[in-house]
Design a protein around this nucleic acid. Sequence first.
DNA 1: AAATAATTTTAAGCCAACCTAAAATAGTAT
DNA 2: ATACTATTTTAGGTTGGCTTAAAATTATTT
Lengths: 220, 220
Amino acid sequence: MDISHTEENYLKAIFKISERDGKPASTNAISTEMETTAASVTDMVKRLSDKTLIHYERYRGVTLTGQGEQIATHLIRKHRLWEVFLVDKLHFSWDEVHEIAEQLEHIKSQSLVERLDEYLGFPKFDPHGDPIPDSNGNFAVRKQILLSELKPGERGEVVGVQDHTTAFLQYLDRMELALGTQVEVLEYFEYDESMRVLANNGREQVLSKKVCQNLFIQKH
Amino acid sequence: MDISHTEENYLKAIFKISERDGKPASTNAISTEMETTAASVTDMVKRLSDKTLIHYERYRGVTLTGQGEQIATHLIRKHRLWEVFLVDKLHFSWDEVHEIAEQLEHIKSQSLVERLDEYLGFPKFDPHGDPIPDSNGNFAVRKQILLSELKPGERGEVVGVQDHTTAFLQYLDRMELALGTQVEVLEYFEYDESMRVLANNGREQVLSKKVCQNLFIQKH
DNA sequence: AAATAATTTTAAGCCAACCTAAAATAGTAT
DNA sequence: ATACTATTTTAGGTTGGCTTAAAATTATTT
């Protein structure tokens, strides 16, 4: 059985949505994620169901079958490995790689993925700090919290971003808040829920609520 | 205007055929190359003509327009650069890379190609000795001849293959006739048009007519 | 519980890319 | 020039993935 580029993208969307919402993916949620209409989704969902890649009952939303989930996690694995390649080897910046990886993730070759993984040194996280699943679809877990959850006096390391937009990533570049940066919360302002933060590069700056709620920190 | 994966493959096929035959690509030739029917080709050829990617007149065969040729050579450029990547960086053997590169060549990102080129050290030839066009579509030319054209006593360097099949490439591996091997023709047998050849690795062996007609040599 | 709103599905149809079978054209041989 | 053959095109139809508009179902409000 072969599966199209488009079908793969639907599976990935369904995976993403059910992970985020912790429940079956609704037709509407999928149509939003895929930037298409609800009718198109219903259409596709029937096909994916015929191929036993998802469980589907009318009006009930969809979940991935084992098979479907395997395809989805493998896509994510490929996407994130390629992102590492683009950043580490080709020196793209972390805000430029998503679209290209979106294409590269559809390349079909088992040995390619495994060799790429090895070539990159078996990375466990991509350039945005997102975990790279192993070939069985298992994600590394990390006890990370949002910077906004840190109390004054507490310290941690920047390990990931929740918001993947170019705007946010470029903002972080400007603020020199790369992954791996050690930070300490100096002060919390109730007024606008911002924080004064000291980074290990010596920079001390105030970060907005929005920024704090989009930065993942590993506490220590 | 955007162009599909399939359309790109047609353009590449047309380029290849007109290069090989030195005349417009016939519907039948294209259908053979694309492993499809003549009717499908006629269908597609009309669309490509509407997009001004080819010149087409019924029953007259097709040729690429400037635009079409640019797309075709750019595909070949990407294909061959990716082959170099797969062999040089991921250590695939030269008989394993074609299919994967066939997919990778469709990745759309100008900066990706240029960075890859740089990363690979601006290679001029791919792992099979085929020239890699520059970003303007210009191919390096090399005065190469077939081994079968060499006379006893003459020497040269193995620089490419005409036959790209796995069988031939693996045969060359066994015979230790990699690209770059220096060879000298010791003896020619009229009986079966085979040759006794001495390689710079000290190996002396008899190569069949078929082998000699599929190995490109740069004479010296 | 009934009415209203939101979501989802169905219906009907479009386009790209394919197919088979039949018709048209071109090329070749007599 | 005619007949035959090979090639190419047309005609008509399929499938995947998409659309809009209408109908059906579910969820929410009163």
